[in-house]
């Protein structure tokens, strides 16, 4: 089985978010980037397929040279090879088209992408890849077993779980549940040393246009001052909620 894990390079969750150029660009200054957590759950599950079922695992990312540390970490965790599509990930459709090209040329049986990336939360890329390549698709996937070409997948649905039987080739939008947080791996020294020698192939993007353009970003409004109302003074609370906050 040949697996492609799509890796998004996203700011660490503790990063302070700012914008530049008139609030049109994300300010990367001082920001630490990590493997998108939903992708990391998928990568860790892919490592399981590699170790238990002899799968080959490649990772792919659409991004500039600045994303290579994140890709190298995926190699240090155990992926066999990496591909970087040398382009800025403008929007979900642009990224999906680039990744679909990688999938088509690489002949992958299983494509694992996070159900959404932690930066822009689009949640579109895995579904678009499946559509572009006419592959089966399971979104919000929390469990995955493969036996030959037969796949049993579990997905999260409102208030419960859904178990699906499908077949390869398949794209999943993965998330926590594929593995647990405690299963996530820290690259060990042997892995880091081996990652030096693994191929990180840079390919140029195919000529496609993005469907959207970012106009501007707004940060959430700063938290306002808190007014504390004595528990005995319900009338005042109602008055403020009605006349000042206009919430009731």
């Amino acid at each position: 089985m040949k697996i492609l894990v799509c890796i998004s390079n996203v700011p660490d969750t503790t990063s302070k978010i700012n914008f530049t150029e008139g609030d049109t660009k994300f300010d990367t200054n001082g920001v630490q980037f990590v493997i998108n957590p939903n992708d990391e759950f998928g990568l860790t599950r892919a490592m399981w397929f590699k170790e238990k079922q002899g799968a080959t695992v490649h990772v792919a990312n659409v991004g500039g040279t600045a994303t290579e540390p994140t890709i190298r970490k995926a190699l240090a965790i155990g992926a066999d090879e990496a591909i970087r599509v040398n382009a800025e990930p403008i929007d979900g459709f642009y990224v999906a088209q680039q990744l679909a090209e990688v999938v088509k040329n690489g002949g992958y049986d299983l494509v694992i992408a996070g159900r959404e990336s932690l930066d822009y939360n689009g949640g579109m890329v895995p579904g678009m890849i499946a559509t572009l390549l006419d592959m089966n698709f399971v979104n919000t996937c929390t469990g995955l077993e493969v036996d030959g070409d037969t796949v049993t997948a579990t997905r999260e649905i409102d208030g419960g779980k859904e178990k699906i039987s499908t077949s390869l080739p398949l794209v999943i939008g993965g998330q926590k549940g594929l593995v647990q947080e405690s299963d996530l791996r820290i690259p060990n020294m042997r892995g880091i040393m081996m990652a030096r020698k693994k191929a990180l192939t840079v390919i140029e993007p195919i000529a496609v246009t993005a469907a959207t353009t970012d106009v501007s970003f707004d940060k959430p409004a700063a938290k306002g001052a808190v007014k504390l109302i004595d528990a005995d003074n319900i009338d005042e609370l109602i008055n403020l909620l009605h006349n000042e906050a206009k919430a009731i």
Binding site: E68, P69, R72, K73, A76, I186, P187, N188, M189, I192, A195, R196
Partner: peptide, 14 residues
């Protein structure tokens, strides 16, 4: 270097 940070971050996480 990229490798310095990879080594450092692995130790930090551990």
């Amino acid at each position: 270097s990229e490798e310095h940070k990879l080594v450092r971050d692995a130790a930090r996480q551990w």
